[in-house]
Protein backbone atom coordinates (compact mmCIF):
# COMPACT_ATOMS: atom_id res chain seq x y z
CA UNK A 1 0.00 0.00 0.00
CA UNK A 2 2.95 2.21 -0.65
CA UNK A 3 1.05 4.66 -2.77
CA UNK A 4 -1.22 5.34 0.12
CA UNK A 5 1.33 6.52 2.60
CA UNK A 6 2.50 9.72 1.05
CA UNK A 7 2.68 12.81 3.18
CA UNK A 8 -0.56 14.34 4.14
CA UNK A 9 -0.26 17.84 2.82
CA UNK A 10 -2.40 18.68 -0.18
CA UNK A 11 -0.92 19.72 -3.48
CA UNK A 12 2.27 18.06 -2.41
CA UNK A 13 3.58 17.16 -5.78
CA UNK A 14 5.00 19.82 -8.01
CA UNK A 15 3.24 18.32 -10.90
CA UNK A 16 -0.07 18.82 -9.20
CA UNK A 17 0.80 22.37 -8.33
CA UNK A 18 1.80 23.16 -11.87
CA UNK A 19 -1.45 21.75 -13.16
CA UNK A 20 -3.40 23.73 -10.63
CA UNK A 21 -1.68 26.99 -11.52
CA UNK A 22 -2.06 26.39 -15.19
CA UNK A 23 -5.74 25.81 -14.73
CA UNK A 24 -6.22 28.93 -12.64
CA UNK A 25 -4.43 31.06 -15.14
CA UNK A 26 -6.29 29.57 -18.03
CA UNK A 27 -9.58 30.30 -16.40
CA UNK A 28 -8.61 33.78 -15.39
CA UNK A 29 -7.53 34.51 -18.91
CA UNK A 30 -10.62 33.02 -20.39
CA UNK A 31 -13.26 34.80 -18.43
CA UNK A 32 -11.47 37.75 -16.88
CA UNK A 33 -12.53 36.90 -13.36
CA UNK A 34 -10.43 37.07 -10.21
CA UNK A 35 -7.86 34.35 -9.68
CA UNK A 36 -9.25 31.46 -7.80
CA UNK A 37 -12.66 31.71 -9.34
CA UNK A 38 -13.00 28.33 -10.92
CA UNK A 39 -16.43 28.65 -12.37
CA UNK A 40 -15.90 28.23 -16.07
CA UNK A 41 -14.84 25.62 -18.57
CA UNK A 42 -18.13 24.31 -19.83
CA UNK A 43 -17.36 20.95 -21.25
CA UNK A 44 -18.82 20.54 -24.72
CA UNK A 45 -18.69 16.76 -24.48
CA UNK A 46 -20.57 16.36 -21.26
CA UNK A 47 -23.80 14.95 -22.52
CA UNK A 48 -27.12 16.60 -21.87
CA UNK A 49 -26.26 20.25 -21.37
CA UNK A 50 -27.92 22.25 -18.67
CA UNK A 51 -26.86 25.43 -17.03
CA UNK A 52 -24.79 23.77 -14.32
CA UNK A 53 -21.17 24.58 -14.61
CA UNK A 54 -18.56 21.89 -14.61
CA UNK A 55 -15.19 22.21 -13.01
CA UNK A 56 -12.04 20.40 -13.98
CA UNK A 57 -9.97 18.67 -11.44
CA UNK A 58 -7.10 16.31 -11.26
CA UNK A 59 -7.05 13.39 -8.87
CA UNK A 60 -4.89 10.36 -8.34
CA UNK A 61 -7.21 7.44 -7.79
CA UNK A 62 -5.71 4.11 -6.79
CA UNK A 63 -2.39 5.24 -8.17
CA UNK A 64 -3.74 6.48 -11.48
CA UNK A 65 -3.83 10.14 -12.33
CA UNK A 66 -7.18 11.27 -13.66
CA UNK A 67 -8.50 14.53 -15.04
CA UNK A 68 -12.20 14.83 -14.64
CA UNK A 69 -14.75 17.57 -14.97
CA UNK A 70 -17.55 17.52 -12.46
CA UNK A 71 -20.65 19.31 -11.34
CA UNK A 72 -19.35 21.07 -8.20
CA UNK A 73 -22.33 19.65 -6.31
CA UNK A 74 -21.05 16.13 -6.80
CA UNK A 75 -19.69 14.42 -3.72
CA UNK A 76 -16.45 12.51 -4.00
CA UNK A 77 -18.51 9.38 -3.30
CA UNK A 78 -20.82 9.97 -6.24
CA UNK A 79 -17.89 10.78 -8.48
CA UNK A 80 -16.31 7.45 -7.60
CA UNK A 81 -19.48 5.39 -7.82
CA UNK A 82 -21.49 7.03 -10.56
CA UNK A 83 -18.86 8.49 -12.88
CA UNK A 84 -15.81 6.31 -12.41
CA UNK A 85 -17.53 2.98 -11.82
CA UNK A 86 -15.73 2.40 -8.53
CA UNK A 87 -18.78 0.91 -6.86
CA UNK A 88 -16.79 -1.01 -4.28
CA UNK A 89 -17.12 1.89 -1.92
CA UNK A 90 -20.68 2.21 -0.67
CA UNK A 91 -23.34 4.78 -0.03
CA UNK A 92 -25.08 3.89 3.19
CA UNK A 93 -26.50 7.16 4.44
CA UNK A 94 -24.95 10.00 2.41
CA UNK A 95 -24.73 12.12 5.58
CA UNK A 96 -21.55 10.97 7.28
CA UNK A 97 -23.33 8.78 9.78
CA UNK A 98 -22.43 5.23 8.76
CA UNK A 99 -18.86 5.03 7.42
CA UNK A 100 -19.72 2.85 4.40
CA UNK A 101 -18.18 5.44 2.06
CA UNK A 102 -14.77 5.52 3.77
CA UNK A 103 -11.79 6.04 1.46
CA UNK A 104 -8.25 7.18 2.11
CA UNK A 105 -7.35 10.66 0.98
CA UNK A 106 -3.62 11.28 1.10
CA UNK A 107 -3.45 8.21 3.29
CA UNK A 108 -6.05 9.26 5.84
CA UNK A 109 -9.47 7.73 6.29
CA UNK A 110 -12.16 10.10 5.14
CA UNK A 111 -15.89 10.02 4.45
CA UNK A 112 -16.29 10.48 0.72
CA UNK A 113 -19.97 11.42 1.06
CA UNK A 114 -19.16 14.51 3.11
CA UNK A 115 -16.79 16.17 0.72
CA UNK A 116 -17.29 17.66 -2.71
CA UNK A 117 -15.17 16.10 -5.39
CA UNK A 118 -13.88 19.54 -6.42
CA UNK A 119 -12.40 20.02 -2.97
CA UNK A 120 -10.11 17.04 -3.50
CA UNK A 121 -8.25 18.48 -6.45
CA UNK A 122 -4.64 17.32 -6.42
CA UNK A 123 -5.12 14.64 -3.79
CA UNK A 124 -4.48 10.94 -3.78
CA UNK A 125 -7.54 8.83 -3.22
CA UNK A 126 -7.44 5.13 -2.41
CA UNK A 127 -10.63 3.11 -2.57
CA UNK A 128 -11.28 -0.53 -1.76
CA UNK A 129 -10.47 -1.34 -5.37
CA UNK A 130 -6.95 -0.04 -4.75
CA UNK A 131 -6.20 -2.34 -1.82
CA UNK A 132 -5.31 -5.58 -3.53
CA UNK A 133 -2.44 -5.80 -5.93
CA UNK A 134 -2.13 -8.30 -8.74
CA UNK A 135 -4.84 -10.49 -7.31
CA UNK A 136 -3.10 -10.54 -3.91
CA UNK A 137 -5.51 -9.46 -1.21
CA UNK A 138 -4.44 -7.04 1.49
CA UNK A 139 -3.72 -8.82 4.80
CA UNK A 140 -6.80 -7.26 6.39
CA UNK A 141 -8.97 -8.47 3.52
CA UNK A 142 -7.59 -11.98 4.12
CA UNK A 143 -8.26 -11.63 7.84
CA UNK A 144 -11.84 -10.51 7.20
CA UNK A 145 -12.43 -13.67 5.20
CA UNK A 146 -10.76 -15.84 7.81
CA UNK A 147 -12.68 -14.31 10.73
CA UNK A 148 -15.92 -13.90 8.77
CA UNK A 149 -15.87 -10.16 9.40
CA UNK A 150 -18.96 -9.50 7.32
CA UNK A 151 -22.30 -10.92 6.31
CA UNK A 152 -24.14 -8.90 3.68
CA UNK A 153 -20.86 -7.24 2.71
CA UNK A 154 -22.22 -3.76 2.23
CA UNK A 155 -20.37 -2.05 5.06
CA UNK A 156 -17.30 -4.19 4.42
CA UNK A 157 -15.29 -1.93 2.11
CA UNK A 158 -15.72 0.92 4.58
CA UNK A 159 -14.83 -1.30 7.53
CA UNK A 160 -11.67 -2.40 5.72
CA UNK A 161 -10.56 1.10 4.77
CA UNK A 162 -11.22 2.24 8.31
CA UNK A 163 -9.62 -0.84 9.85
CA UNK A 164 -6.40 -0.33 7.92
CA UNK A 165 -6.32 3.31 9.01
CA UNK A 166 -7.03 2.26 12.58
CA UNK A 167 -3.95 0.03 12.57
CA UNK A 168 -1.78 2.68 10.90
CA UNK A 169 -2.94 5.33 13.35
CA UNK A 170 -1.83 3.10 16.21
CA UNK A 171 -5.28 2.48 17.64
CA UNK A 172 -5.36 -1.29 17.36
CA UNK A 173 -3.62 -2.37 20.53
CA UNK A 174 -6.58 -3.66 22.49
CA UNK A 175 -10.10 -4.85 21.72
CA UNK A 176 -11.60 -1.81 23.47
CA UNK A 177 -9.41 0.57 21.52
CA UNK A 178 -10.35 -1.02 18.21
CA UNK A 179 -14.03 -0.90 19.13
CA UNK A 180 -13.83 2.79 19.96
CA UNK A 181 -11.82 3.79 16.91
CA UNK A 182 -13.94 1.68 14.57
CA UNK A 183 -17.22 3.04 15.89
CA UNK A 184 -17.67 5.29 12.88
CA UNK A 185 -18.38 2.23 10.77
CA UNK A 186 -21.83 0.83 11.28
CA UNK A 187 -22.65 -2.80 10.52
CA UNK A 188 -26.30 -3.77 10.69
CA UNK A 189 -25.63 -7.50 10.30
CA UNK A 190 -23.63 -7.31 13.52
CA UNK A 191 -20.26 -8.61 12.35
CA UNK A 192 -18.51 -6.38 14.89
CA UNK A 193 -16.80 -9.04 17.06
CA UNK A 194 -15.37 -10.75 13.97
CA UNK A 195 -14.16 -7.46 12.52
CA UNK A 196 -12.41 -6.64 15.79
CA UNK A 197 -10.76 -10.08 15.79
CA UNK A 198 -9.54 -9.58 12.23
CA UNK A 199 -8.04 -6.16 12.95
CA UNK A 200 -6.35 -7.32 16.15
CA UNK A 201 -4.85 -10.31 14.41
CA UNK A 202 -3.36 -8.28 11.58
CA UNK A 203 -1.99 -5.79 14.07
CA UNK A 204 -0.59 -8.51 16.32
CA UNK A 205 1.12 -10.29 13.48
CA UNK A 206 2.79 -7.03 12.58
CA UNK A 207 1.82 -7.36 8.94
CA UNK A 208 2.47 -4.40 6.74
CA UNK A 209 -0.74 -2.52 6.19
Amino acid sequence: MANDQTNASPDASNEDRRFFLKQSIAIAGLSAVPTGLLQAALEPDDGPVGNAVKIQLSLTINGKRKRISVDPRMSLLDLLRENLGLTGIKKGCDFGQCGACTVHIDGRRTLSCLTFAVMQHGRKVTTIEGLSHGGQLHPLQEAFIKHDGFQCGYCTPGQLMSGIACIREGYADSPDEVREYMSGNLCRCGAYPNIVDAILEVKKEGLKV
Binding site: E129, L137, I145, D148, F150, G153, T156
Partner: peptide
Protein backbone atom coordinates in the same frame (compact mmCIF):
# COMPACT_ATOMS: atom_id res chain seq x y z
CA UNK B 1 -15.17 -19.40 4.60
CA UNK B 2 -17.74 -17.49 2.61
CA UNK B 3 -17.74 -18.52 -1.03
CA UNK B 4 -18.31 -14.88 -2.01
CA UNK B 5 -15.80 -13.56 0.48
CA UNK B 6 -13.33 -12.44 -2.14
CA UNK B 7 -15.93 -10.40 -3.99
CA UNK B 8 -17.19 -8.81 -0.80
CA UNK B 9 -13.82 -7.76 0.59
CA UNK B 10 -12.52 -6.47 -2.71
CA UNK B 11 -15.51 -4.35 -3.66
CA UNK B 12 -16.27 -6.57 -6.64
CA UNK B 13 -19.66 -7.71 -5.35
CA UNK B 14 -22.32 -5.87 -7.32
CA UNK B 15 -25.38 -4.64 -5.41
Amino acid sequence: SRVDGNEKVSGAATY
